[in-house]
């Protein structure tokens, strides 16, 4: 990775994190969608061949994400150490849940039994939740640690899972595709609500200016292309418009694409660090103290940008 050498004046301000690159983002992108897909297929009631394909796709997505992370860590041959801290580390918990997901998913693929598909789905939800908590536990990144990031990440994982399931259902012409289209529409709406809530709460509670700028900058595109358009496509599929399968396929792809765009932005582009601050400027000589200085933040009362 290219060395990052900030200028002296910028050292105290929040900086875009450079340790988790596209490989780490891919874990949240693929893993979250995979977990959501496993849950979606567990309760969608689609036929066994399509269900097996969906389970396989979900497992493949989770495996892809974890493989990407394995290529990112500094000491990949020690990767098994990740299981050493179940008590508090959500990364350990994610890794443990991943084992159970693959076990249940593997049994579902082998047997086609509904019970194993449901168990794999529940584990998929646990995997998705673990990933959301990994981000939220990082106090160094204000946009991640905000409590509203957890429902957002879980919500988008569920929407992406329903999006993938829509694609599978459309491909197989599954009888349950109306039900899938309806669930997809609901989850798209839910994700849009989580997104707007996340942005509003982040604005209210404060975050680095640069992070807010990135998130607000992509919001209208995300809401239009990742929510409004796929919701319309899903509605057309639900209404039985000509080319129904195509509408469902498009709705699924756009929902997944919107979620991945959002997660990549959150993990990479909007991931600005807390930065450093001085709560009280020092009193020198006969002078007085000054107000709090928190470079890169405007929304803290009394704070001035450095």
């Amino acid at each position: 990775m290219k060395p990052f050498i900030p200028r002296a004046a910028a050292l105290a301000a929040p900086k875009q994190q450079r340790n988790w690159d596209w490989r780490a983002a891919a874990n949240f992108i693929c893993g979250g969608a995979g977990g959501g897909l496993l849950l979606a297929v567990a309760f969608a009631g689609i036929e066994t061949p399509a269900a097996r394909i969906a389970v396989l796709l979900g497992l493949a997505l989770i495996a892809t994400g974890l493989t990407c992370v394995w290529f990112e860590i500094g000491r990949p041959w020690r990767a098994m150490n990740v299981y050493r801290h179940f008590a508090t580390s959500w990364m350990t918990r994610e890794a443990v849940v991943a084992l159970v997901v693959f076990a249940m998913g593997g049994l579902a693929l082998l047997t086609g039994a509904k019970a194993f598909i449901v168990l794999a789905g529940i584990c998929g939800l646990a995997f998705l939740y673990s990933q959301a908590r990994i981000l939220a536990a990082n106090k160094g990144i204000p946009a991640w640690r905000h409590p509203a990031s957890v429902p957002l990440l879980v919500g988008t994982g569920l929407a992406e899972g329903a999006g993938f399931l829509s694609c599978v259902a459309a491909w197989f012409g599954a009888a349950a595709s109306s039900w899938v289209a309806l669930v997809l529409m609901v989850l798209i709406g839910l994700r849009a609500w989580f997104w707007k809530s996340f942005l509003a709460r982040l604005d209210g509670d404060g975050a680095p200016d640069a992070a807010l700028k990135v998130l607000h900058g992509m919001s209208s595109r995300l809401l239009l292309l990742g929510h409004a358009v796929p919701a319309i496509a899903a509605a057309l599929a639900l209404a039985g418009a000509p080319g129904r399968g195509g509408w469902l396929l498009a709705a699924g792809f756009l929902t997944v694409g919107g979620g991945w765009f959002m997660k990549y932005t959150l993990v990479r582009r909007a991931a600005f660090t807390q930065g450093l601050s001085i709560a009280h400027l020092p009193v020198r000589g006969r002078g007085v103290s000054g107000p709090q200085v928190k470079p890169g933040w405007k929304s803290i009362p009394g704070a001035k940008a450095g």
Binding site: N19, G74, R78, M91, I134, W144
Partner: peptide, 10 residues
């Protein structure tokens, strides 16, 4: 340490 950088983010 496996160099996962989770602590760097935290």
């Amino acid at each position: 340490c496996i160099g996962c950088a989770n602590c760097v983010m935290a």
